[in-house]
Design a protein around this nucleic acid. Structure first.
Lengths: 339, 339
DNA sequence: TTTACTTACTAAATCGATTTAGTAAAGGAG
DNA sequence: CTCCTTTACTAAATCGATTTAGTAAGTAAA
């Protein structure tokens, strides 16, 4: 495979390894023009490529960060990842990506492996279940940033959506449009899944605040594959709410599946608003009103914090990034025809 | 940061570093039960984590592969990546992901950096413009697999969609459904972009084969942002084709934008079929008939070949994976109402 | 002429593992 | 009791860089 080492270059250029190393690290200060040229020539001639692993060993830095996500297939994840990669590219850093499928065992294994691999930092969408491990990372002063979720009792940088605000934005809009009977669809409640918990709580709060009824049968927190069935049941009993708030793209898809199967009309039969600005929102009929997560900014913020941590001790902070309501036609006022 | 080394473990366990190393590598053969326990205890007590970088230096393998893609935001890329990551996970390998934005400069930089970083192999969606570099990689016997595109004159493993077959599948279907006036939308023609070229050529071939007219104004190869404008122009002159073949998801989106803006009905006013099974295909109205790329299999095949290369010399091969037509309602026979 | 400083290098230690060659002790055969 | 094996280890070299301490030669000042 690769055989040319610094020693070979040194020999050919008739200098010591040290000098070659100085050259590579651009410490030209006390180096003659002549020597510099000879080394450059030797490198060119031998097609020498420094072995970064060897350097890493000595310098204790790998210019690599580990990013641990649930599932790269989720749009939010992909976008955050893209932002991270862009920023790393500017710093000549590399990104190792790991999928946990929200499985704490896999998460643990990945953290251990990346740690052993001496990555310079971690950006993690945490499962939330490896509390001891997270603590050990912090104690070891590893640079760590959490994204999307935080974990109670872990003092670490975290970049999250302002979920309360997101729900508020959507609910205020729906209420403003005149909807009073509003339901929610979400995956099953799980206390450690922060965004879910916060969104569901904020939903209840918004209804209470507006003095609207909280009907438990309209709060569907169910495995995604069962959601459209639950909606079917409501429809059969003629008990559909006027509007539905879908807390993410997956649940939105289920609602749309239901709507299509039952040949309902949005927003006439049922109005719809959701968190996550799906790529087809504007070409769907009717176009979908959504609450967009600032995915790129989340990635940028997380990376920025990580680099700050790598640059020196800073005290952990939690960042709540602002969602944005994108008004389209799926939740226009009752009686309106839409655009 | 991390300070515990093998020497510390050795000292605490009262054995030599060599013995600790044997233990870590599970070469227990001539090791007493007692020693084993002492080492295990010391490791536990010191919370020792082996430094993989040091091991890599000696063993000349990093258990890491580099994946270089145009843009992780593309669905195909994401899916291929997911498959790669899954397979690597099984082998305890890691994946470094790099975005080139289809820029040869960035590609070159990334390949150089990853090479220096001693990754054990590369999976590349090649820009196609760094021919010399690709050649040097092959000469250096680096394991390399190309995905999505190949490059003329480079003898390397490549995993591609069977583009001819994909177009044929779609075109036969359209023709079977009774469409005779068929147009195509694609990004601008570029000879090194294999899938594009092959699809456009196959489209012309399919028309010729069926004795249908090839009208150049219906073959729209245009920057994505200009596509819907071109369609507008055709509509104004009342010259729209009966059916449109969109060669990928991006162009499909443009057609859908146009259709929505002009309030046309699919498939009545215009039938539609596309390569790439977009996630909203089945919930769109009408549901969209698509030709799905076997993205996961592509990722799996690429990784499989990469591991084969890493296992020993094999001769390069090109793999053409089969697309799959998913019939829905956007291109049902003229006169039919759809489901 | 001596001392001091600058310039242009180099030798050797170091990073933290793996690995090879070797050794000491114990057990068994003759 | 010697010789050979087997067992259970260890010392030292190695991977390919970086880095520190040091040196030799040349120049300048006193």
């Amino acid at each position: 495979m690769q055989k040319v080492t610094m020693a070979d270059v040194a020999k050919l250029a008739n200098v010591s390894k040290s000098t070659v190393s100085q050259y590579l690290n651009k410490r030209y200060e006390y180096m003659s023009e002549e020597t510099r040229r000879r080394i450059a020539g030797a490198i060119e001639q031998l097609q020498y490529r420094p072995n970064v692993i060897a350097r890493s060993l000595k310098q204790k830095s790998t210019a690599t960060i580990g990013v641990i996500v649930f599932n790269i297939l989720h749009m939010l994840t992909t976008q955050v990842l893209r932002a991270i990669e862009d920023m790393c590219q500017q710093h000549d850093f590399h990104v190792i990506v790991c999928n946990t499928d929200d499985d704490p065992e896999k998460e643990k294994k990945y953290i251990d492996m990346l740690w052993a691999k001496q990555v310079d930092g971690f950006i993690i969408f945490p499962t939330g279940k490896n509390v001891d491990l997270y603590k050990r990372m912090i104690e070891a002063r590893l640079p760590v940033v959490f994204v999307d979720r935080t974990v109670e009792g872990i003092d670490v940088d975290a970049v999250l959506l302002d979920n309360e605000r997101a729900v508020q934005l959507g609910m205020h809009y729906l209420i403003e449009q005149g909807y009073k009977h509003i339901g929610l669809v979400a995956p099953p409640f799980a206390p450690h899944v922060i965004p879910r918990t916060e969104r569901i709580n904020a939903f209840r709060y918004a209804l209470r605040e507006a003095n609207l009824p909280i009907k438990e049968e309209w709060i569907i927190t169910e495995q995604v594959k069962h959601i459209s069935g639950r909606l079917d049941a409501l429809l059969q009993r003629n008990k559909l709410p006027e509007a539905i708030f879908a807390i993410n793209d997956l649940t939105l898809m289920e609602v749309l599946t239901f709507v299509k199967r039952r040949q309902l009309t949005i927003p006439h039969d049922i109005a719809l608003i959701s968190i996550d600005d799906v790529p087809f929102a504007s070409i769907y009929t009717p176009s979908l009103t959504t609450i967009a997560q600032p995915a790129f900014e989340m990635g940028e913020k997380a990376t920025e914090r990580l680099f700050m941590q790598m640059g020196g001790e800073i005290s952990p902070q939690m960042f709540r990034l602002a969602p944005k309501l994108i008004e389209r036609d799926s939740a226009k006022k009752r009686g309106d025809k839409g655009e």
